[in-house]
């Protein structure tokens, strides 16, 4: 055990205060009875009430959730496929290039991703709306899914697939009946990751959204420019909780499943002497 010192305690506290104080203040003020954001006038949940009366916010929230669900589902499918090909596809021409390219969007500035997508949509005459946001979100979040899934696939025992083939599966059946069930936890946590990324996203969404569809982050951003209202605090608090739950369950699922599966797999293999 390392010793507990005042220095450690102080740096820990400072770090967490730095990270979470703004959010804590936001959460507290979302329960403020006063309309003025800076004056505390007692506890109240009325802003949550008025929030649910606000059509514009509700619409945006609905769009955001639809976008998040659809795009993360696309991303999960495409990301898993990409990961599978890159890990399993053997050494084909330009494999290194491809695997590098799939990770590039992770480090690409969002502004650039957003801008390039905008140019593409304008170029092909695609009307901007919910569909374009979904496509854009799929594009950048599938990379994250593919990172999560390929790290699982790397440790996946190849002979399980061979055994499935041996027992009469076609390659696709082997994937569906053996590989997919075994890597499912990684796919799910990839999905959750994509989902929360899509909920959060402001930059790419603002490039690719149109007048017909606005997401919540865009709505909040534009509302805040006219002044912070307690409603926004309430909304943000709700988003914080959704994202927190999403991230925590993603990490819990993948961790628990990884531990369990590794145990099962190790057990299912023979112990080599």
């Amino acid at each position: 055990m390392r010793r507990f010192t005042w220095f450690n305690a102080t740096s820990l506290t400072l770090g967490f205060v730095f990270l979470y104080l703004p959010m804590v203040i936001l959460v507290i003020y979302s329960f403020n009875a006063s309309k003025l954001v800076t004056v505390w006038a007692g506890f109240s949940t009325k802003w949550y009430g008025t929030l649910f009366q606000n059509e514009a916010f509700l619409d945006a929230a609905w769009v955001t959730i639809k976008v998040a669900v659809v795009s993360s589902t696309f991303a999960a499918v495409l990301g898993t496929m990409a990961a599978y090909v890159l890990v399993r596809g053997g050494r084909f021409m330009g494999r290194t290039l491809f695997s590098g390219m799939i990770y590039a969007p992770l480090v690409m500035p969002e502004v650039i991703t957003g801008l390039s997508l905008l140019l593409l949509f304008i170029g092909i005459g695609f009307d901007r709306g919910m569909m374009t946001i979904i496509l854009a979100h799929t594009t950048f979040s599938m990379c994250y899914v593919s990172v999560v899934v390929s790290s699982r696939l790397v440790s996946f025992d190849r002979s399980l697939e061979e055994a499935a083939l041996d027992l009469g599966c076609s390659p696709f059946e082997a994937f569906r009946l053996v590989t997919l069930p075994v890597i499912a936890p990684a796919v799910i946590s990839g999905w959750l990751l994509a989902f929360t990324l899509s909920l959060d996203d402001l930059v790419i969404a603002s490039f690719t959204s149109g007048p017909s569809a606005t997401t919540l982050p865009i709505k909040i951003y534009s509302a805040v420019r006219l002044g912070v209202s307690p409603e926004i605090n309430a909304l943000s608090t709700m988003m914080i909780s959704i994202v927190t739950v999403g991230v925590i369950s993603a990490s819990l699922i993948s961790k628990r499943a990884a531990v369990r599966q590794q145990r099962e797999e190790r057990a299912a293999e023979r112990i080599d002497d």
Partner: peptide
Amino acid sequence: MMFQSYALFPH
């Protein structure tokens, strides 16, 4: 084939 590693399906 019975595999050297058994390759039982864990799920």
